[in-house]
Simulated assay, not measured.
Amino acid sequence: MFKKTVLLLALAGASLTTLAGELRVLTHSSFSLPKDKLAEFEKQAGVKLSIIKAGDAGEMLNKLILTRGNPIADVVYGIDNTLIGKANAAGVLEPTSSKVGRSVTGISLPGAVAVDYGYVNLNIDKAWFAKQKLALPTSLDDLAKPAYKDLLVVENPATSSPGLAFLLATIAGKGEAGAFQWWAKLRDNGVKVAKGWSEAYYTDFSRNGGARPIVVSYATSPAAEVFYSKEKLSEAPTANLLLQGGVFQQIEGVAKVKGGKEPQAAQAFVDFMRGNAAQQALPTEMWMYPAVAGVSLDPVFKHAQQPQAASNPKLDAMQHKTAGWVSRWTRVVLKSGN
């Protein structure tokens, strides 16, 4: 992880004759880019960059909304398609665009600039299933069957962005009524709920010593397993389970903050995040796909199966209904209600 620090950051392409001052960048806790890439950028002008990590993306946006009268940042990275409607409705973003790079088809955010995208889906522990000689589930409905009792761990959508993404995928895939009926069956079949991704993946997932061989994670997780492994692996120890209604496409973006003190420097940072240096680095730093078309990927991404389809509710529905969906999920899964 990229530790919070204050760096000198250059404004590539900016026609500044004096120092632009401090550029405050608000991000979620997973923001990470190599220091040398930021150092290359800093040499071209003398803006002082303050990276402010504010927890998960939801916490980050809430802090931005609470401080909109006196913004705590000039530019924000990490607002995704589950949150962009809320951000726009709250009026905390300055409409932002960039002329740098051509976006991958279908990858955009209204009012912000797409930086990366990825997929939330189920991962499985290949060795566990081979040892137990249990066939992989072929549908979400299979997960509610006795053969898969007590095998799945998910993240709480009220406290976890992948948990929320997975809930949204099930709603888009099964319809609202069908999704919550399925979640009730899953509850009765022993689904475990973790607070966040780290707890689910590193504590409950059987690959890491837990008892659950199926976990809500990311399509790039198998590639990350190979990348970070101490031994040289020829294949990933985990695999994606891309079930219909169980895949969500997440798009993350960057935008200028309304009322920010350094709009010119903020625009330069937006363009930097779309530039080749950042786009080439982010896949193996944040394990997302670059939003700019034509960027080459590290060879380790051969272990990351990119889904051909995803189940996403419409942006308007996510803006207006997500809070209600999360409340209903909590009643159904955690409180055994309706």
Rank of each mutant, 00 (worst) to 15 (best):
L315D: 13
K145C: 02
H303Q: 06
E285N: 10
N276Q: 12
A127R: 15
P71W: 02
L19T: 14
P110M: 07
A158L: 06
R212I: 02
L7W: 03
V76E: 06
R331Q: 15
L241E: 09
G275A: 12
E252S: 12
A278V: 06
A317S: 14
L109A: 03
A291K: 04
I171M: 06
V104C: 01
W183T: 03
N338T: 12
P299E: 10
G85P: 08
S311M: 01
Y77A: 13
A114E: 00
K258Q: 09
V153K: 09
S98W: 00
V113N: 01
L282T: 05
V332G: 03
W182C: 06
T27S: 02
G78Q: 03
G324N: 04
E252F: 05
G58W: 05
T67S: 14
S15I: 13
R328C: 08
A169E: 00
G245H: 05
D188Q: 13
V332E: 05
G13F: 07
K35T: 14
F227V: 09
V216E: 08
L151K: 13
E94H: 13
Q280A: 06
V247R: 04
G294W: 07
L83D: 06
D80F: 01
V191S: 14
Y119D: 04
A114L: 01
V326A: 02
Q308L: 14
I79D: 05
A236M: 02
D142I: 06
W329D: 00
F129I: 11
A39P: 09
S198R: 06
D188H: 14
T170P: 07
G13V: 11
P213V: 01
T105F: 10
K302H: 09
K3V: 14
G253C: 00
D204M: 05
T330Y: 09
K99I: 10
G106K: 07
G209A: 04
K126N: 10
V292W: 06
A57F: 00
L168N: 00
E42G: 15
D316S: 14
G196P: 09
D298H: 14
L11S: 08
A224F: 07
F129Q: 10
V153S: 11
P34F: 01
F129E: 11
F180A: 02
A184S: 10
A14N: 10
G118T: 05
T5K: 09
K314D: 13
D116P: 09
E22T: 12
R328W: 02
K174R: 14
G106M: 02
K302L: 07
A89N: 09
A57S: 12
S160P: 02
K230C: 11
S32F: 15
Y117G: 00
L168E: 05
A89E: 14
L152S: 02
K335G: 00
K131L: 04
V226S: 09
A169L: 03
L23R: 09
F301P: 08
P71T: 04
S103D: 13
S296Y: 01
Q264Y: 11
Y218A: 12
H28P: 02
G275Y: 08
F129L: 08
R102K: 15
G21D: 07
D141I: 08
A158R: 08
Q319H: 03
S311T: 10
L16W: 05
K302A: 12
A177P: 08
R331Y: 00
Q306V: 10
K258L: 12
A239N: 04
A54H: 00
P290S: 04
E22F: 01
